[in-house]
Design a protein around this nucleic acid. Structure first.
Lengths: 106, 106
DNA sequence: TCATACATGTTGCCTGGCTACCTATAGCCA
DNA sequence: TGGCTATAGGTAGCCAGGCAACATGTATGA
């Protein structure tokens, strides 16, 4: 999968993956990989800055914990994040219909 | 529609739109708008550099003509462009399935 | 002891879409 | 005559964001 195909869609994916239950960064990477059938294997340099961005934007809340001697920062969807996710889903629907429509070959 | 959602997908759209018949830049903008139900209204600063990029990459061939006193640069899909388009379509299929899958709420 | 998985982070590059700007012709209307 | 709009092409430079590369540290098992 091309690198910058993801541009502008990553936020939605992250928000979606923490929708059901809060996850820490490393687990989010794994969850994205699992949910995409291995297609998404995002480097930490992509995911961690994105998480900070989303928290700063008010879409995620984070809290530290320690599990098995390892520190974890767990992110959870805020209510603003929930609305943002809904909006992103709608935008994605439009976007994918537009692209599929133009690509045609239907 | 968010600006950079398009990142990495624009090339496919352009190639798709000149697949059936060659078009000049201005007409490509209109064709994209028409085919997307008005969702895509791309500025010239987006489309013209993209066309040059695609020509440089060998996916498009261009030729000048004059119609009604106005100069036109008409672009047409090369055979390499045709293969690229096919590849892009496949990538889009994968990509959209991945995103839709992760966004869930299927 | 060393490799690997787990876990978090930062710096800086690079790409590409967009804003803003420029040029020029044709046609219409006042 | 002047001005607006549609048609047609283009460029310079901004900026965001995904990523490569790097840095740090713990736990586990061979």
């Amino acid at each position: 999968m091309k690198a910058d195909a993801l541009r502008g869609h990553l936020d939605s994916l992250i928000l979606a993956v923490v929708e059901k239950q809060p996850l820490h960064g490393y687990a989010i990477i794994e969850a994205l990989s699992a949910r995409s059938g291995g297609e998404l294997d995002l480097p930490t340099g992509t995911i961690y800055p994105a998480l900070r961005r989303l928290e700063k934007a008010g879409y995620l809340d984070s809290s530290w914990s320690e599990v098995g001697g390892r520190k974890r920062r767990t992110y959870e969807l805020s209510s603003a994040g929930r609305s943002a996710l809904a909006a992103h889903r709608q935008e994605w629907r439009t976007f994918s219909q537009v692209v599929s429509g133009v690509l045609g070959e239907a």
